[in-house]
Design a protein around this nucleic acid. Structure first.
Lengths: 163, 163
DNA sequence: ACATATTGTTGCGTATGACAACTACCGCCA
DNA sequence: TGGCGGTAGTTGTCATACGCAACAATATGT
């Protein structure tokens, strides 16, 4: 901001990052939509199932936070997974309000199958790179996600209502 | 594949990239949903408007291809933008079948406003880095998108139906 | 014990997107 | 030149996805 010479370059880079991320977003969404037909779960169900498998005993609120969704949406996704017998709903004995979501064996198996297939694709993608480039790529993508998440949290989830 | 020692590392990297990309995807989707309320357009309308502004005279099929959507969906999004007077539909004089989508002044202005706001955020994000790191980040994200797009094209948009 | 806060569920409206059927138009070719 | 297959777009229909608001059930603090 202080030096005028770097500003155009920074702005240009920002535009290009925006474009590249938008493209990546769309193609990944498309891929996910497309691949969902291969399995017994929809895209959002797939992500939710993965969250439940990874953090056994997740509450509905936790699930909503993990997926950046409203708790009502999370509740319904959990419901759909329970209907498919991939997840079981139990009550927390400590706190009668909270629900604990646990993956059933079938759910864990399905998640593992999807995970293995996906990981295989990513492995192909990364094959051509050395370990240090792969690590750098992962770090950068992870950093981007965390930065966005931080930005989202400060705004409280309401960009323009909250000043 | 030949050396057993590198395989676990590659698989591990693939998993981590999957996780990081999933997280990034979700948070960006959330941010987009959240920010859509600031403007007069929905998320998909925003992307479509941007495409139309950048490639004046886009056909509906082109729009669908650019956004990785079905042509019917693209047609309806175009319709909604026409309803809002952000885009005009004209017929190609060369080929009576194709529609040419052109942004109206209001559409271009809205797109520019959104673009400026978004770019500002990205600029903040990139501020801390030197130009070479910024370029590397952009290249990597762009490369990822292209690789996914290539993978999507070979499968023809039907992952498991086509063998 | 009661007011208040928190967890989760449900009603409702909207957005998003695919598939299939249909119309309109193009170009080819007999 | 008149039909025929192919292509561009539109529309009907359906399913999923998501948020907000209202609500019930439970927990907690005074």
């Amino acid at each position: 901001m202080t030096t005028t010479a770097t500003v155009p370059s920074l702005t240009r880079d920002a535009e290009r990052l925006n474009d590249a991320l938008g493209e990546l977003l769309r193609v990944v969404q498309f891929r996910d939509r497309d691949r969902a037909c291969c399995y017994d779960v929809s895209v959002s169900q797939c992500y939710a199932l993965k969250s439940v498998v990874e953090a056994e005993g997740l509450s509905v609120n936790d699930l909503a936070a993990a997926l950046f969704l409203d708790k009502s949406t999370a509740s319904r996704i959990a419901n759909s997974l329970v209907d498919k017998r991939y997840v079981a709903r139990t009550r927390d004995p400590e706190d009668g309000r909270v629900v604990q979501l646990v993956a059933t064996p079938a759910g864990a198996a399905m998640s593992a199958r999807i995970e293995a297939d996906t990981t295989g694709e990513y492995a192909e993608l990364l094959e051509g790179f050395g370990p240090e480039v792969r690590t750098a790529l992962i770090e950068l993508v992870g950093w981007l996600g965390r930065r966005f998440a931080a930005g989202v949290e400060v705004s409280g989830g309401s960009c323009c209502v909250v000043k």
